[in-house]
Design a protein around this nucleic acid. Structure first.
Lengths: 332, 332
DNA sequence: CACCTTGAGGTAAGCGCTTTCCTGATACCG
DNA sequence: CGGTATCAGGAAAGCGCTTACCTCAAGGTG
């Protein structure tokens, strides 16, 4: 590896001069030296050592992102928003896939901390209450006391800035829609019970049910398509009189559609998140849209824009919207 | 930020001892000191500065990944494979989204180089020939001369290790399938003409066409669903006698399905990549499966496992397989 | 012409950590 | 009991870079 010293020697200047030329510092330098140094850089294929730079400058440039799984379209879209804003600010984004393992979340927080990132965005539902969850919040706090910034997406926090999708409201919209269509026996394919996202969306659905004097038949799955299919199959078998199903995300709704096809049943289905796939399945999925890219963008903005010191954590709410398609219809 | 020196002072030891204890070096240390140091670490919430560590150890730990767009399911799946292997080896993965801009690819190569990553995986189709492409290969070579490792996915290279999906063969399989079903007028929705992936898949399709004495009606799109829909609409309008369409990826095939629905036409459609969505659209998509996760895994293995010095670049081929579903049928 | 700017470049002190070598002290041997 | 391993720990030299500070010479003043 060519170092700055190599470049300087080759150009016959000091490392200070070489550094200044390469970084375009404001210090004036003769064109003569400038060309010599740049020539040396090119010949030696010199690339500055970012670690040494970070150490010497002690300025933080990168930002870290914690997501459950980038290959999940939900997080893929959020990530896209995060990246857009970060890149626009010239920041390097380090994406960490937690694979939904709380332990890995903790590891990654420390790793990002160690890498001196300027900010960390934690995306994805938290757990209703668990040791790992409190531990996570502790580490996030520790990171913030060292001058780092934290923004969370869809996860409650009373210490960090947060952008919260209207999960409860979205659940209500879905429920309201189904009940207004005249459905009285509505099943719910929920996510893992321990997740706040599940709890919030379910709460909205329950609020709608109560408003109409109904109860819900809830079964828990894991937010995956296949999990949704299995849950739907069970639901269909257990509750023969159901006329509608609300799934707490689109993947599970798609699974439910598939289950219905194999069972030869035909209920109304509502999804959640309005992923791209929603309009391409048959019947096209009625779903609660959450502007995920925007969610990511706002979170990154919060993360990069330091709040006035001493102010309380900022919270932004992102509204949900019901997109009506062909998978829900009035009960006959 | 607490530093190692702070910890050492607090524990009343030298930084050398503190470092050894924290890193679990083999040097023996009394339990007395060990507990004191660990206590100090906890109290000060000390997290070692990764940049300083890298600099001092000068060992490379992270690996970089260049992908066009993580939120594209094609790359999301490859990325998942890459991450699995990297994480299993205890490596940090830095994912860089090039947003399909060649200039950004160059930038990121340098950035990863600067960050002293051990290896870089470049995923995604290259360009048939362009200045940016040769420049990219030059920078990759420069990175390799400094001891870095490079592996490319689905991109030809005569200097670096590569894992190549059988794009040509896959195209052939799709074509063969369609012609065997008796289709004589087959349209193709291709990707951007400048991409090697497009060229390879198309070549396979052409080989099948020639074998059956047919020609193809090709139209180029951009590998996105909406692009595919637009291209299909045009194709249907221009060629009223078409009975089948091959799309060079599933997203565009889904778009084609949608176009057909709005035009009220009903042709056989074959996709490519066998993304999860393929089985959830109606009709379920016949597609050429590429084991993308495996593609990623193999590439990361190549990247992390240094070849015997002086040996030629390794190349692994990943086979394609035709998955028959309901979107293709015999011509009547 | 002595004095002060100013310009152009070099010197060297860190940034936070690892690790080689070194120092005392203690234990062990013939 | 002198001599040598052995052990626990410290001193300090970097890793590659940035930057505050210094030097030297040339040009500008009164």
């Amino acid at each position: 590896m060519a170092t700055l010293a190599d470049v300087a020697r080759r150009a016959g200047v000091s490392t200070a001069t070489a550094s200044r030329i390469i970084n375009g510092s404001s210090k004036p330098v003769t064109d003569e030296l400038r060309t010599r140094v740049l020539a040396a850089v090119a010949e030696l294929r010199y690339v500055p050592n970012a670690h040494a730079q970070m150490l010497a400058r002690s300025n933080r440039n990168a930002v870290g992102v914690l997501v459950h799984d980038v290959s999940d379209p939900y997080f893929a879209e959020i990530t896209r928003g995060l990246q857009r804003v970060a890149t626009a600010h010239g920041r390097l984004v380090i994406i960490c896939n937690t694979f939904r393992e709380p332990a890995r979340e903790l590891e990654y927080i420390d790793l990002l901390h160690a890498h001196q990132v300027a900010a960390i965005v934690v995306a994805g539902s938290g757990y209703l209450s668990s040791d790992a969850e409190t531990e996570l919040h502790e580490r996030m706090a520790a990171f913030e006391t060292t001058g780092g910034r934290i923004a969370v997406i869809g996860r409650h926090s009373h210490t960090s800035d947060a952008v919260l999708p209207a999960n409860e409201e979205g659940g209500f919209l879905a429920g309201e829609h189904l009940f207004e269509l005249g459905h009285t026996a509505v099943g719910v394919i929920a996510g893992p019970a321990a997740l706040t996202t599940t709890a919030d969306r379910l709460a909205g659905l329950r609020r709608a049910a109560e408003a109409h004097g109904r109860t819900l038949r809830v079964v828990h799955a894991d937010f995956t398509r296949d999990g949704g299919e299995a849950a739907a199959t069970k639901l269909l078998a257990d509750e023969p009189d159901l006329t509608a199903v609300a799934a707490l995300n689109d993947s599970m709704a798609v699974g439910a559609l598939s289950a219905m096809r194999t069972c030869g049943r035909n209920l109304s289905v509502a999804g959640f998140d309005d992923m791209p796939i929603a309009r391409d399945v048959t019947p096209a999925l009625t779903s609660v849209r959450l502007p995920l890219t925007e969610l990511g963008e706002r979170a990154m903005q919060l993360a990069l824009d330091p709040p006035p010191p001493g102010s309380p954590p900022r919270v932004e709410h992102i509204r949900a919207e019901l997109i009506r398609r062909e998978s829900t219809w009035p009960v006959s």
